[in-house]
Design a protein around this nucleic acid. Structure first.
Lengths: 133, 133
DNA sequence: CATGAAGATGACGTTTACGTAATGCGAACG
DNA sequence: CGTTCGCATTACGTAAACGTCATCTTCATG
């Protein structure tokens, strides 16, 4: 069976990142690979985290913001007060993300409209060109 | 009637940016304020562009990418071939943005599920606490 | 006319997110 | 058994996106 652990090279090929990036994320406490001697071995949890990191980046979150988001997925041994605070932060994040989606939808609609206008311009330019021949 | 032109200070207050930012965007050819002597005066077009810039940033686009997007809204005097190329780029952007929205929707759903789990954890912790008293 | 507020222009500093050597080390291989 | 491979660490470099200073005009105003 496929081992639950991956080397740094395997990670790089799977997720299209450089070793430097993975070490950097570890230094920033976004990933926590275990060690076999010197070498890093990335767990399933690390892979799940990495996916979330890469997704977060695509939406313009900073690594620090992503780190906070990741914590939401790795509580479980927290105290009640801590947990509640985390929960509140998560609610804010959710609202933020939903607002972003709204905005993105608006941007998409704008661009679509612009494209329709572009189609008309192109069509009219083609006509002019034909008329000039 | 409100003048069609705004000073740099008015722009800053309206859009919550610094003068430095506006000058920087001009240097990067994202904005093209006109000059009254030395002073910059921002047109309606500049304001429309700035809104798009700020929106683009919220979605993790680089200023260079945003500059290319902005061009889509300011063609009109292009050649046919140029126009067609621009149109193709716009289509790619659109696909990109729609993919992003899909992903964002997925992330929102994930977070919502996580929150439901969090609610249960908090509830059980409260019970334990009460039982211990 | 002095001055002070608003804006301009360099020029250098800063943070984020890695890139890029330089160097070292253990295992595997010819 | 030397050397190459893969990975490690340390440290300096870099591009993007502004922040921060210092210095200079230009008006409006007391």
């Amino acid at each position: 069976m496929t081992e639950d652990l991956m080397t740094i090279r395997e990670m790089c090929e799977t997720y299209d990142v450089t070793p430097r990036t993975l070490r950097f994320y570890e230094a920033k406490e976004l990933l926590f690979p275990i060690r076999e001697g010197q070498k890093r071995l990335f767990t399933k949890s690390d892979r799940a985290r990495l996916k979330l990191i890469l997704r977060g980046k695509r939406f313009g979150f900073s690594l620090e913001e992503i780190r906070q988001l990741l914590d939401l997925y790795h509580v479980g041994d927290q105290q009640l007060t801590q947990m509640s605070r985390t929960y509140e932060i998560a609610l804010e994040r959710l609202a933020d993300m939903e607002a972003r989606r709204e905005e993105l939808t608006q941007a998409i609609d704008d661009l679509k409209e612009q494209l329709r206008w572009g189609e008309k311009v192109i069509a009219s330019m083609k006509n002019e060109k034909k008329a000039a021949e």
